[in-house]
Amino acid sequence: MEKDFNGVSLLRSIRILLLILITLFALFLFLPSIENIWASLQSEPRSITARGSLSASEKTNIEIFQQSSPSVVYITTLEDTLNLWTRDITRIPRGTGSGFIWDRQGHIITNYHALQGASAVKIRLSDQRTFNATLIGASPEHDLAVLRIPMIPNMPNPLSIGTSHDLQVGQMTYAIGNPFGLDHTLTTGVVSALNRTLVNNNGSTIEGLIQTDAAINPGNSGGPLLDSAGRLIGINTALYSPSGTYSGIGFAVPVDTVNRIVPRIIKEGHYQRPKLGITINENLNKKITKELDISGVAVIEVQPNSAAKRSGLRGVTIQNNTLISGDIIVGIDQHQIETTQMLLSTLERYDIGDTVQVKIFRKGQVREVSLTLE
């Protein structure tokens, strides 16, 4: 009897031990799930950590965007398409870009290249009001165009105008525009370089551009580049990128150029560079100045009844590929002239009617003549 009892006790102990092991194994397998279920039943929002005040730079970014973004507009260009079966003409979207309010008369500034090939242009304000725009005029050489919408109630404020002649590399920049159709996008950066030169779509050269690393992408064209005071310092016009998207190098037409040319376009419908009244030729100029071992611009021809004619400038005379006589322009006022592009860029600084002192090289001597630009 005692042996049987002990055998039963041993068997019962083994069963209890197995049951305990199975229970422990089951808990090991299913305990995480049970814990997750329990945690989900007990879950509550976590307490919020106070962040403190915004940094000074964040406050500046926010203030500039809130102040300036209502003045930035969304531009949609349209083109006419002909249905060959019905002969109906339909206008379809062609592209998008950016622009900004120039004055309370409804003038809007953008890039000329953003409008090329368009049959019509629509302007959408930040409050979603949309208007048909009229092209007032353009200066393709500077990639600038002026549009106009009707004078409306609650016209957004024009952007504050700054200066670009005193910019320094390292200053903060703020670009607002509509990259890839994403309206009113703010990007920030610095002035990366100054006085950059780009070849325009029409083959002309745009000089004096501001280089910035604020992200500029397709759709930003025509939008404003601002300084840390929220003033306009340039118009975003181009980006350098092998892929066609942002690579850290963007360019803007400086505001000093804009503020000189836009009023002329508004007043006259076009921009005309002040003229001396001479004919120049890049290829001939290189040959002549090389032969004379001098930097300047050769006066190839003096136009009749021109300011140059009245001031006594002389065109060059060439016989048997040899320079006989003629004037070489080497300076205008305090500006040194070494190439034809430098001459054209220098004339951009003046208005029609301004009187300038033209320094010329003639027969081995440098002399000055007074000339009124026309």
Results as ranks from 00 to 15, higher is better:
I261L: 13
S311L: 01
G219Q: 12
S53W: 08
F100C: 03
L135H: 12
N220W: 09
Q42Y: 11
L78D: 03
I22S: 05
G312C: 05
L54Q: 09
S33M: 10
G162R: 08
S69L: 05
Q67C: 01
G117R: 11
T130S: 15
P218F: 10
K287R: 11
I123Y: 12
Y74C: 04
H270A: 10
I48H: 10
S57C: 02
Q116Y: 11
E44Q: 15
N259H: 12
V255L: 12
G269F: 04
G117H: 07
L323Y: 08
D333T: 08
P242L: 07
S228T: 03
S370H: 01
N61P: 02
S370E: 11
T185S: 15
E79G: 07
T340G: 00
A39F: 14
I108W: 01
S295E: 11
G99V: 04
S228K: 12
Y112R: 12
T322H: 15
V199M: 00
A229G: 11
Q334G: 02
M342N: 10
T185E: 08
L198H: 01
L371A: 03
A214P: 09
R51E: 14
L373G: 06
G296W: 05
S13R: 14
D354F: 00
L135M: 14
I48A: 13
I108G: 03
T110N: 08
G189K: 05
R87A: 03
G312Y: 06
L167H: 07
R124F: 13
I280T: 12
F28P: 00
A238E: 05
I149Q: 01
D80R: 10
L239Y: 03
G312I: 03
S33A: 12
S241K: 01
L17G: 11
Q365K: 14
V258D: 04
V258N: 06
L147W: 04
K290G: 15
A56D: 12
S55L: 10
V366A: 07
G277N: 04
T77A: 07
D4R: 13
H184D: 07
I20W: 05
W38D: 09
L209D: 04
L115W: 09
S69K: 04
K309W: 02
L11C: 05
I123C: 13
P304C: 03
S164A: 05
Q336Y: 06
L209K: 05
T188M: 13
I64F: 12
I280S: 02
P242E: 11
V297T: 01
T77K: 07
V299H: 00
T130R: 14
L11D: 06
P70N: 07
V169G: 07
I235E: 04
T90L: 03
I62T: 13
I34P: 01
Q128A: 14
Q272N: 10
N281L: 04
N157R: 12
Q357S: 14
H107G: 03
T205H: 02
I352G: 07
L19V: 08
N111I: 05
K309P: 00
Y74G: 02
V255Y: 13
S228C: 08
N281Y: 06
L323K: 05
L82K: 09
I101W: 02
T173S: 15
I108L: 07
T77W: 09
V253G: 08
E374K: 06
Q168T: 15
N217E: 06
S47C: 05
V146Q: 07
P274T: 09
Q128R: 15
E141F: 11
K363F: 06
D80P: 00
I152P: 00
